[in-house]
Amino acid sequence: MVEILDWVRWGLNHSDRVLMLTFEHLRLSLPAILASLLVSVPIAAAANRLRPLREVIVSGTGLLYAMPSLPLFIVLPIILGTGVRDMINVVVALTLFGISLMVRSAADGLAAVPEHIRLSATAQGFSPWRRFIGVDLPLAGPAMLAGLRVVSVSTISLVSVSAVLGVQSLGSLFTDGFQRSIVASIVIGILATALLALLMDLLLVLLGRLLMPWTQTARTSAGPVGRGRGR
């Protein structure tokens, strides 16, 4: 119990640093989460279009996830021509991991859009592009959101590893805490990372409800209608 008080006191005494590192953590993870979504959707759409290659593309990008994060943080600078401690490497590496998770859920979500809905959209005069934006994308939305939530949690937890290379993030609380034997620093770091992941998840769920209000109303309006039928 006394230890918990110590940790809280340490956290309060170092709140400035924890906040600054949280900000750095977000600066690395947010672009990666956004980029993996933006890159994955076209790849998934193309994979679905090229039937015979679909499994190759989806499994191939999935294989990226087998790449260990720390070595990737080290090898990427050579390919990109950046320094080892540059934050761009971390963002690119995290984006690659995000893509490896996201392409499958985007491809599955898009493939699950019923064919007759697609055909009727075309019959109503939707151009392929407008059909993709106005019909396919919203209908695949819930599946994509589920995938993006996994990407978000995994990215926020993976960022920390880059701290051993000297890139600042909440992971710096682990390396500092270890080198100076401060248990509170590591505990606060773990809690802050978990809290950040949780908040991002809540934010994504809220964003999903805002952008896809029908996933909400479908559930609430089904209630009274269902009951009415019973009577």
Partner: peptide, 16 residues
């Protein structure tokens, strides 16, 4: 457990 940062876990156990 999946959301736990592994580096945090390793360094924490290492201190003990």
């Amino acid at each position: 457990v999946r959301a736990l940062p592994t580096l945090g876990l390793i360094t924490l156990v290492a201190l003990f």
